[in-house]
Design a binder for these strands. Structure first.
Lengths: 241, 241
DNA sequence: ATTATATTAGAACAAGTTTTCAATGTCAAT
DNA sequence: ATTGACATTGAAAACTTGTTCTAATATAAT
């Protein structure tokens, strides 16, 4: 016993599979069993049925029982996934990739001596100078992207935050901050913008700590410190010469 | 005479057209007339046939006479062309977007006291720890992406280059540099890695200038300075607390 | 040779499916 | 009210299509 077990697919099955794909491509709907039989020069519908069952067993096609022209090709010989599936797959890929590339409005500059420009809430950046494209993976998980905006740093006043002229900082709009956040603040007494680590000392004072540990912190009363956003990412591009 | 001439399509025709598309998407083959009728709550097949003829007249569908489930949608209400064309369009979109999001291998760490790990040329990073996703727009025009690699900065030795612990630097492989490039170099005499601006003084010496202008440059003989790459981008991520 | 299984044919049947037709309802314009 | 194009119905007819059954033939292992 044990006759040759169908290694792979027979010639006819292959031909049927190809025909299914080409017919669908050409007509927009699948062929009937008799049409298949005609193509492989087989008169009897039962034989075609026989082959189709094989193809189904092997996972190449799917059949909707008793329904006319209801053969669906799941995969082809070369592993290609035809049509619907390929389309779906492409679609999800588009969505995924598109989702992973975020456009953040570059709404202005930030420097020591002038206030931080703020984007209008919700009304998404019509007047943005340009946008900065950033991969989602570089940003904190699931930030609402509408809360993000970018500023270009002007001048060297942020050097103690390790941020230099020309750097791009990406911020999340915020009025309050947690201890340890890198924040953009406006100091009312000093009339100055700065980027520092934020620590709320429980005595009504706020300590603003430079990133560079060798430098001294700034300590101000809470009401003199206006938080404008949390820094989520800093970008520094270098031109190649 | 001249009764209301069908302006556009009737509600039912529209519904049928939508159904045709969604059914085909879902099942992989077109619906029968009865199934259509069922969907729009119409018992008589002849009425559905009537609507289908209209749709055909209007050029929305094509029918294979007497053949079961042989309706092909040519165009939809919003002018979209289903199937193959949509697939092609989606595919190109995928390719375009995917092209704008680049995966750069993160191949190790960089610190003052140990050499710069280098990726094998061409052999694309099998052993990369992970990858950094970056928008093409942030990189210099048309860099060969295979020449790019990323390193995570360890320690605070690069502070004078305004680069801190945890920062990610993206480099382009290079053995020589132009004046003004920010480069990653290995100093053989000092046994040290550093990131500095590169200036070749024509007297056989190289001046390595910190980004922070208040600091003093390092000057070394040309042969003691091994350029490993040009810095093209620095990323600093902040966790939100 | 024998046996079990794989392959093929043909026909008949049942179910699925589209067409056709005659009849009737609807509605705006005459 | 009458007309006539459009819309709708139900049912029968005609055709397409998938399934099943029986039987015949081939093929490989025993």
């Amino acid at each position: 016993m044990m006759a040759r077990k169908s290694e792979g697919l027979g010639e006819r099955s292959k031909k049927i599979l190809e025909f299914l794909v080409s017919y669908q491509e050409k007509h927009g709907y699948p062929p009937s069993i008799r049409e298949i039989g005609n193509h492989i020069h087989v008169e009897s519908t039962s034989l075609v049925d026989y082959y189709l069952n094989q193809l189904q067993e092997a996972g190449y096609i799917e059949r909707g029982g008793r329904i006319s022209r209801s053969i669906r090709v799941l995969r082809t010989l070369d592993g290609q996934t035809p049509f619907k599936q390929a389309f779906e797959s492409a679609k999800t890929t588009v969505e995924r990739v598109a989702h992973e590339l975020i456009s953040i409005p570059l709404i202005g500059r930030i420097g020591a001596s002038y206030p931080i420009p703020m984007p209008e809430s919700d009304v998404p950046y019509f007047d943005s100078l340009s946008t900065v494209e950033v991969a989602q993976s570089l940003l904190p998980n699931k930030e609402k992207i509408t809360d993000l905006f970018a500023l270009e740093v002007e001048g060297e006043s942020m050097i103690d935050a390790m941020i230099n002229d020309g750097d791009i900082v990406i911020l999340k709009r915020a009025e309050v901050a947690q201890n340890g956040d890198m924040v953009a603040v406006w100091l009312t007494r000093d009339n100055e913008t700065t980027l520092k680590y934020y620590y709320n000392e429980r005595n009504g004072y706020v300590r603003l700590q430079p990133a560079n540990r060798t430098m001294q912190p700034i300590i101000r009363p809470e009401k003199e410190v206006q938080v404008r956003g949390k820094v989520v990412l800093v970008l520094r591009q270098f031109k190649s010469h």
